[in-house]
Design a protein around this nucleic acid. Structure first.
Lengths: 331, 331
DNA sequence: CGCAAGTCTGTAACCGGTTACATAAATGGC
DNA sequence: GCCATTTATGTAACCGGTTACAGACTTGCG
């Protein structure tokens, strides 16, 4: 019973015209007579005809779709990013083809290969992949914008300016009198995790060379923040500030401190990174990264590349904004 | 310089074989000799060949992609849903083609039409569209699962059991001694908004026919919750509980009450709906809707339909779970 | 050894669009 | 009224895969 849908030839037959005329009408070409146009439109609506996108993109070598490769959809950062991508893409008439890439670079190139012929360009966010593997995974000749990723020359890269963000927060903590700042880092092989950790060490060496530093390796999860903080307390470490590499770990730290009846920010200040929506509700001091804005700008740049109107590829840094809230300074 | 990528014919030429053999090797058919297989694989890797998905789906009439039409990506409910969809889809070898549909049903059918030929099936979530418009917008012969939407016979529908959820919360509020429960509703034309409002009125009439009822129309946004609550306070209304149609409005209500120095839950209890991650952190009593789980189940059902192994279409209700937290009962 | 069955490979049609080119008709300038 | 130009339409090739069918070559069995 499931009859196959009408094709352009069915429409041509119904309108007693050639497929070329039908195609011209449907694509809004000017060289068609009014009468022809009407007959086509009537036939289209009678048959409920909808052009087949696969056939169209095969012959035009365009798909009006943009591939998005993300490490995982977990967390608010990603959903904000996708929201920005979607907004900018639909404004420009593109759809989004989503693919999550679980960890390994082999799976990454597989995910990217599966998009060949389906998309006009790629947005790739893969902070855990090294520059070499990335170069290997990315297809040649397909416009690509990398987000928060390591990458090779010749591809546009958009990144959060982790160094600037970390420096701003370290300065803020020092300015408010903190003397022993502990950093809870993300995974070491994650680009943002590594950059934030290195920036913390560099900022401390630069601004307060006499103060102690300490880095604990977490994994960006709330439970890691909580566990590592409890570990610090258990070993009786002396510290008056925790600067976590993202908000979720910072929230975990807050929970652990509250559980141990340690005043925040009275005894220990806590800061995060990202400014996820939760951070505002829980008054967490952090660095605001406009994920939706990054997504929108990534699409804008990618569409420019697809249309060949883009300038030279660059490394585009977005400086996060320091958000001082109640976990670092008393209200 | 951007040379066009290799085609199957290039591979055939390089391996000195026919395109049919190359295709057979690539699709893992058994009737190919070992030697042939190796020559193909060598040529593929030499040329960096990747099959063109558009061509493949044109000739096979399959795309291995699932279209997802959502009203908007705002809010945690959607990001959770998309996460569930993505997980289940990638487990089954499908990609997700995302499209947001801003409000009108005309745009909805446009978004759906744009997917014709690109996807093997559709997940449509459009709580603001009436059953008639929905029937008109959906393509015939394309497997479809509707999520939280009005819909016609013959299509599988997955919905949150708003009635059960609302009844559970109303009972909880009454059990804890509340006598004047105000409902802040969502948009009236939104399916969930309407169902929750009606269920509130029905539950009150049923369980506490002598108590007063009141409905204020909001729009699911935090600011609406805040504004309407302030309005209640300004007019000196007497109430001891606010039951909002979603968590964000409930949070807005909490903010407004705090701002007016009214104790929660001491003087006024507040409850939401959805159990977004924020709700847990802010100890909001609410009804848990497992959005990721809904997404996963929707994909599972859709893939069954695509493969023709699905049972008859039904209306599948998911009963939300009552989460009692600190905004309705004192700790 | 001859024939049937089975295995492997190649040719070419097909999926459903777009579009270069050819053709036919209409228009305009002289 | 004739030829050049413009405009509208049709024919058929093409995009890059898959696959039905045919043909060539083995293999097995009587």
């Amino acid at each position: 019973m499931r009859q196959s849908p009408a094709t352009i030839r069915d429409v041509a037959r119904a309108a007693d015209l050639s497929v070329a005329s039908v195609s011209r009408v449907l694509n809004g070409h000017s060289n068609v007579q009014q009468d022809t146009r009407e007959r086509v439109l009537i036939a289209v609506s009678d048959l409920g005809y909808v052009p087949n996108a696969a056939a169209r993109s095969l012959s035009t070598a365009r798909s009006d779709a943009i591939g998005v490769v993300l490490p995982d959809l977990h967390g608010e950062f990603f959903s904000e990013l996708v929201r920005g991508l979607d907004k900018a893409a639909s404004e420009r008439g593109y759809m989004l083809l989503l693919s999550t890439m679980h960890a390994s670079s082999a799976l990454a190139s597989q995910a990217i290969a599966a998009m060949r012929g389906r998309v006009d360009g790629l947005i790739v966010m893969a902070p855990q992949i090294g520059a070499d593997d990335m170069g290997y995974a990315l297809p040649v000749g397909v416009p690509t914008v990398l987000v928060n990723s390591r990458g090779e020359l010749g591809r546009h890269i958009m990144r959060v300016d982790n160094g600037a963000g970390v420096r701003a927060m370290v300065r803020h903590l020092l300015d408010t009198g903190r003397k022993a700042i502990v950093h809870i880092a993300g995974m070491a092989d994650n680009l943002d995790g590594a950059e934030r950790r290195d920036a913390y060490l560099a900022a401390m060496a630069d601004m307060a060379p006499t103060l102690p530093t300490r880095v604990l390796e977490g994994d960006f999860s709330e439970v890691a923040g909580e566990r590592l903080t409890r570990q610090l307390l258990d070993e009786g470490a002396s510290f008056d500030a925790i600067f976590a590499a993202n908000d979720m770990m910072a929230l975990g730290a807050v929970m652990a401190l509250r559980g141990a009846d340690i005043a925040v920010p009275g005894q220990v200040a806590v800061a995060g990174f990202d400014d996820v929506p939760l951070a505002r509700y829980l008054s967490l001091s952090t660095l605001r990264v406009d994920a939706a804005g990054v997504g929108e700008r990534a699409i804008a740049r990618l569409v420019d590349e697809i249309q060949g109107t883009a300038g030279p590829a660059t490394l585009e840094l977005q400086v996060p904004q320091l958000m001082v809230r109640a976990t670092t300074v008393a209200g």
